[in-house]
Design a protein around this nucleic acid. Sequence first.
DNA 1: CATTGATACAACCATACGGTTGTATGGAAT
DNA 2: ATTCCATACAACCGTATGGTTGTATCAATG
Lengths: 111, 111
Amino acid sequence: MNTATDVDRVFAALADATRRDIVRRAIDGEEGVAELADHYPMSFAAVQKHVAVLERAGLVTKQRIGRRKVVRTNLAGLRVARRLMDQYEELWRGRIDRMTDLIADTKETHA
Amino acid sequence: MNTATDVDRVFAALADATRRDIVRRAIDGEEGVAELADHYPMSFAAVQKHVAVLERAGLVTKQRIGRRKVVRTNLAGLRVARRLMDQYEELWRGRIDRMTDLIADTKETHA
DNA sequence: CATTGATACAACCATACGGTTGTATGGAAT
DNA sequence: ATTCCATACAACCGTATGGTTGTATCAATG
């Protein structure tokens, strides 16, 4: 019932192999939705929905070119998730440092 | 070698604010499931399920200590997802390089 | 303007997910 | 052995998700 946050949407969007593959393909930014759909064993409508999910998550953008809409991945969207994981790693390093300090303190105490 | 469903599970696990917060808290690796549950406005069972999801995704581990099971985040699990996004970024850089080369070629052709 | 190609969207179905309560298991403490 | 605390798990409920088909929009072309 809670409205999903931006981060929720980014991770949820990446939690599907088809969508991750669309992100990969759309890095080149040359294919429209129908062209993308040709790569997958599902209907056009299904792929169109996947692209919509990625778009709502800010992971791809669509640009009208002629009668098609070309799908392009949006690097900034990916960085949202990456930054979060970098932060976790940062916290982890902090924990190690704290433990190291603790050991150092213990040594001093016992010196 | 990671099957696609492993990656699915990691991203899906991170697509929930409560679970991300558990990952953050479990970096310190001191709280059991019940202690974690106290931080959230939901039942113990709900939190226990969230921890189970994180465990299946390889994002946390549990260790028996006394009568509790202490939850610890597993940095390696996070890196699975991070590596994938690094790869996307790599591809992106490749695309830029290719475009740059193309422009360079054009210049040469017109020289 | 009628047609065709590419995309969007609605309705529907099956399954997965996030939450609940209730019950069972496993160590600690008495 | 009994009690108590912490954890696990099953059954259930409402909603979200991933897929389908069918219809509507919109832009290029005859």
